[in-house]
């Protein structure tokens, strides 16, 4: 565990909690892509099946349970409790265009052709693109609430910090996982455009709105 890994995890946790609190406090999930949240719930579920088969550390187990629990809670708030506020008309990204190719790729490119390993690989690939419905929704409506942009910032920052963590681990531990690294690079690149808008607009006190 190095500082980049730890801050990455905490950044991920911050993102998840910001989103939950935003929905809970405002009693509304307006502007949030339920599809992205379902994809993240799928990501955590398929990745953390090893909760049942392997014990790594108390930290590892607790974080996994928190991530899974929060992601299902978020999906519940969007599709059940505050369903009336869900903006389904703007959440029109076709998720099958992500899930099907990602599923195929995880069968083709993996570390080991076993069910748990393929599901883990699926989760890594899916996570890389799971934010696309949310970004698509923002590009469609042309704006995002500031709190939503904070959520996206921490979510993007998390994988960027993991990239530094992987460089660190390669140099100091000789550890690297090519699948995670390539997917993590793709994932981080998808946020670059957003990071630019976040720094040039949101951090200067302006609302994130895109030119028509």
């Amino acid at each position: 565990m190095n500082i980049f890994r730890l801050t990455g995890d905490l950044s991920h946790l911050a993102a998840i909690i910001i989103l939950l609190l935003k929905i809970w406090k405002s009693r509304s999930c307006a502007g949030i892509s339920g599809k992205s949240q379902i994809l993240f719930a799928m990501v955590f579920t398929t990745r953390y099946l090893d909760l049942l088969t392997a014990y790594i550390s108390l930290y590892n187990t607790s974080m996994k349970i928190i991530y899974i629990g929060c992601s299902y809670a978020t999906v519940y708030l969007i599709y059940a409790k505050f369903k009336a506020t869900y903006d389904g008309n703007h959440d029109t990204f076709r998720v099958e265009f992500l899930v099907v190719p990602v599923g195929g790729l995880s069968f083709l490119v993996n570390h080991d052709f076993s069910p748990l390993e393929i599901l883990w690989t699926f989760s890594i690939y899916l996570e890389a693109v799971a934010i696309l419905p949310q970004l698509f929704m923002i590009s469609k409506t042309g704006e995002a609430e500031t709190i939503t942009t904070h959520y996206l910032f921490f979510l993007g920052l998390y994988r960027a910090l993991y990239l530094i963590n992987w460089v660190w681990r390669f140099y100091f531990e000789g550890f690297f996982d090519m699948i995670a690294i390539v997917a993590g690079v793709v994932q981080t690149i998808l946020y670059c455009d957003f990071f630019y808008l976040y720094v040039t607009k949101v951090l200067k006190g302006k609302k994130l709105s895109l030119p028509a």
């Binding site: 790594i56 570390h111 995670a180």
Partner: peptide, 10 residues
């Protein structure tokens, strides 16, 4: 099983 990557990351 030794060369399997460990899944200690989240």
């Amino acid at each position: 099983e030794e060369d399997k990557p460990t899944k200690d990351e989240l």
